[in-house]
């Protein structure tokens, strides 16, 4: 490489760097500005409800069995017509996910017979302590639809004798 070529390359390098000033920054102002997530991105878990406000989760713990990271802990409780959380006999009294153990594989979603647990790209689990990263049922459960009472509900006897409601149709796209 002759002197001329060395100098040319240095000048070209300087020009290239200077040209970058006109480019839009590739970085973004993170908390205010966020990049759109992929529609298939698995964010954090949400426990869903039916349209009448009852919880979909029936405390069967199939998700906990399917979980390869052993991140889910479920304790079931008995439903009564005076204090009804979900259709059928049982509901999840305790539902905890350790977000530090979770590998976001989505197997819990696949295992769920009632489509109660769904991974949605809405928010990300963040926290300052290990304890705060264990998400409880209150944190995971979505709020009921507008003008619909939350659980527990007082329900007429004999109305909810099946663990899976025939209505509304399960939205398979979620």
């Amino acid at each position: 490489m002759g002197l001329k070529e060395v100098l040319t390359r240095i000048v070209v390098g300087f020009a290239t760097v200077l040209k970058t000033v006109t480019r839009r920054p590739v970085t973004i102002q993170y908390p205010e500005q966020q990049k759109p997530m992929s529609a298939r991105f698995r964010g954090r878990h949400h426990l869903k409800r039916y349209e009448d406000g009852l919880e979909r989760c029936i405390g069967c713990a199939l998700c906990a069995a399917a979980c390869p990271a052993d991140a889910i802990y479920v304790e079931a409780g008995e439903n009564t017509d005076e204090e009804r959380y979900s259709p059928g006999e049982r509901y999840a009294k305790t539902y905890e996910i350790n977000m530090l153990r979770c590998i976001f594989c989505g197997y819990c979603e696949d295992a769920c017979p009632t489509n109660a647990i769904v991974l949605e790209p809405i928010e990300f689990p963040t926290g300052y302590t290990r304890e705060s990263m264990i998400y409880t049922k209150e944190m995971l459960l979505e709020s009921p639809p507008i003008n619909v009472p939350a659980t527990p509900q007082r329900t007429p006897p004999g109305k909810y004798d099946r663990a899976i409601l025939p209505f509304p149709p399960i939205d398979e796209s979620q």
């Binding site: 200077l18 970058t20 000033v21 480019r23 839009r24 920054p25 590739v26 970085t27 102002q29």
Partner: peptide, 8 residues
């Protein structure tokens, strides 16, 4: 330096 590297 940030501007020259397409950063903010």
């Amino acid at each position: 330096l940030a501007r020259l590297q397409a950063r903010i």
